[in-house]
């Protein structure tokens, strides 16, 4: 089955038809999605700016990791569920959209970076403190990726 046929099939399932016909579902789900983005994005921005050394310098990096990364893992599932509902409602708008694909690619990359940051910190709480350059790179790339994710997310609507 090719991707366009899959989109066709998905858009004819009862659940998709429901999302398509009940007018308030998509705006409501998008609102939940964006509110969750604010939580993840701000948490990551706080941590990334600390890793880069721009903000929160009086606080230990390991403490910042422990403080902010859990918010990401708790909010990500809600983002995945709300995002999936949007895909089920309009499969071809998302799955065949280059902005959507770029967004997913950036998301997977940033999840990998966040996992490395957290796991290294778990093993050795001074790991990032003693590797300022590496920490700066991880934080900077992560922040740029999150900005890219939000940007691509908004541009999906304009493809």
């Amino acid at each position: 089955m090719t991707l366009p046929t899959f989109c066709d099939w998905l858009s004819n399932t009862p659940m998709s038809l429901k999302i398509q016909t009940v007018l308030w579902i998509i705006p409501a789900v998008q609102t939940v999605h964006i509110l969750c983005v604010t939580i993840v994005m701000t948490s990551m921005a706080m941590l990334d700016l600390r890793l880069v050394g721009v903000a929160g310098r009086q606080q230990l990096m390991s403490r910042m990791v422990n403080r902010f990364v859990p918010w990401v893992w708790w909010t990500l599932p809600i983002l995945l569920i709300s995002g999936s509902l949007l895909i089920i409602g309009e499969p071809s708008r998302e799955l065949l959209n280059p902005y959507f694909r770029a967004k997913m690619l950036m998301l997977l990359t940033v999840i990998a970076i966040t996992l490395v940051v957290q796991l290294r910190n778990l093993k050795d709480s001074t790991f990032w403190e003693s590797r300022k350059l590496l920490a700066g790179c991880a934080g900077g790339i992560s922040l740029l990726l999150w900005i890219g994710i939000v940007t691509a997310g908004r541009w999906i609507a304009y493809y």
Binding site: I34, T38, I39, T42, V150, R154, Y158
Partner: peptide, 21 residues
């Protein structure tokens, strides 16, 4: 329009996220 809108969304994300903290 989409570019300015993206800046608008990114700004709101930081406004809401930070004030929520």
């Amino acid at each position: 329009f989409p570019t300015v809108e993206t800046i608008h969304v990114l700004s709101i994300v930081i406004v809401v996220g930070s004030i929520t903290m």
